[in-house]
Amino acid sequence: MRIDAHAYMGHWPFRPLRGNTCEALVRRLDENEIDRALVGNINGVFYKNPQWANEELFADCESFLDRLVPFAVLNPTYADWEYDLEICRKGFGMAGVRLYPQYHDYRILGDGCTEAVKRIRDAGMVVSFSSRLVDRRQRSWMDSAEDIPMKNILHVVRQVPDARYLILHAFTPDFANDDVVEAVDGVDIQFDMMYGTATQQIGPVLYDLPTGIAALGPERFSFGTATPFREYPSHVIRMELLESALADPKALAAVWGGNASRLLART
């Protein structure tokens, strides 16, 4: 099974995204022979009350639930968010919650965020942070959100090690760093691999994917594309090159979708 662990529908306010509906996403999965995708609604980043976006997502993907796994977007500083969490879980069958402290006006290092992570954990859902949505170098003048450093995400992971995590736009210069290895030890956490390369030519914004996989284990990485922000073929090419770099075909299958499948199986 191949799963895209990082997909979106909805609108980005600063440029049009093509193919930004669930129906178009399924077409894109078909074109690339990907079985399923974990999808969230970008609109939830910008609505004051993100529950509107979760309702939109559910309505848009209801016909595609055999292919798409909806993830909620929630703002734990907004009124009655716990109720929305329950609706997303029990009413919409959503598998996880994407949190955007950099856009929703709270600190990832604050107690409120930690408490929110615990609530999501207790609801049996996956907690997802995204270090960014777009490259900061090309941000709009209206988009003042800062990237979340990996060390801050790992701080939360240390505070709540028994939650399940999916980290999107995951970037650290060195996944083999002792701090990263120590922080994720024993934690059910996965990283997308958008900034990894399997070519051994490590440019300034890349990390060596085989080294990261060797350090953390193949169970820590999932195929993810950020579609429709990003084009699709690059990510499939990366997986194809990774196939040559990984000696164990089971490791490759895990990254392609086995890991995401395992993460979701516990929801």
Partner: peptide, 14 residues
């Protein structure tokens, strides 16, 4: 193998 929205077993990986 096309399952429901959230239930996916690890057997799918093989």
């Amino acid at each position: 193998s096309a399952l429901g929205a959230v239930a996916m077993g690890s057997c799918m990986t093989t």
